[in-house]
Design a protein around this nucleic acid. Structure first.
Lengths: 155, 155
DNA sequence: TCGGATAGTTGGCAACTGCAACTATCCTCG
DNA sequence: CGAGGATAGTTGCAGTTGCCAACTATCCGA
């Protein structure tokens, strides 16, 4: 096994472990933003414009049932709207409400600011490179979905 | 907010969400390997040689209580050994047992193989670049630990 | 029109996490 | 040297996330 792959594996492992953190108790601040999971879903719905639930699940490589609950919560909070799909009575089309859009924008700005600070010492070129490689990696992950799942999850 | 940072944020978000997958039911295969969390901890202990629990927690940016339980499980499974720290009666020094080492090696080989497949189409140079940037990112994350936590977890 | 596929939902269960409270040990300072 | 604060870990408690399986409703091809 060649060494760069080994290093990628190690670094990804570390990064993913860190990402496991779950934020609780986020009430209190008047500007209460979004929880991790909600942010992911809301952000995706926003970027797609209109999506189906099953499409979201595929993107995130999550079970539809998982996404179903997250969407339900977002809808209850008034951040997402579901409209019946005129072409398929089983499906629902998800869109972001104005409120949802507003909350998302604030959350994103905050995250980007933090990331901006973390990357402050990086040459602009490296940031671009990193962005490109991450994008490529995500794309390839999705193509190898079946294998990938075993890797991420570790069977 | 400049665009490359934005893209990094988006790609990381996607990647992290995918990493949320938790694998259950991993019994069945005779070569039952490690679960995600256990793999992370075991791998780190192995690489460090000897570590304290609190050190692990800092590396993963997790609460010590969380790591405490993971270590306890690994110990119960006979993959990790704890020895009292001769220089500090409160602390314990963690090391990997021969069995643990064996299981870890198998798991790692499998993961690397999968990653190898995902990265099959990449020029060797890009893989190296990616590895380097990930490492740099992880290092910077740890320096900005306080901010980082809010970002990963989303407050 | 009937039966198999598809979109989502819900119930049940396990894994992770964090915080707070608690024990045991360490260490500094009077 | 003894007291009190800091530090290493553990445990109780509760919340989030995730998967699978079973179920409903709809769609679509024969």
């Amino acid at each position: 096994m060649d060494s760069p792959v080994k290093q990628v594996e190690e670094e990804l492992t570390l990064l993913m472990c860190r990402a496991q953190r779950v934020r609780l108790h986020n009430e209190g601040a008047e500007l209460r933003l979004l929880e991790r999971s909600a942010y992911n879903v809301l952000g995706r719905v926003h970027d797609e414009g209109v999506v189906r639930l099953s499409e979201l699940a595929a993107t995130f490589m999550l079970d539809v049932s998982t996404v179903s609950r997250q969407v339900a919560a977002l809808q209850a909070a008034g951040l997402i709207r579901r409209a019946p799909d005129p072409s398929d009575g089983r499906a629902a089309l998800l869109t972001v409400t104005p409120t949802g859009r507003d909350v998302l924008e604030r959350t994103r700005a905050q995250r980007r600011q933090i990331l901006h600070d973390v990357l402050a010492g990086w040459p602009a070129q490296d940031v671009e490179l990193f962005a490109g490689l991450l994008a490529k990696f995500n794309a390839d992950l999705r193509e190898h979905a079946a294998d990938t799942i075993s890797m991420l999850a570790l069977r």
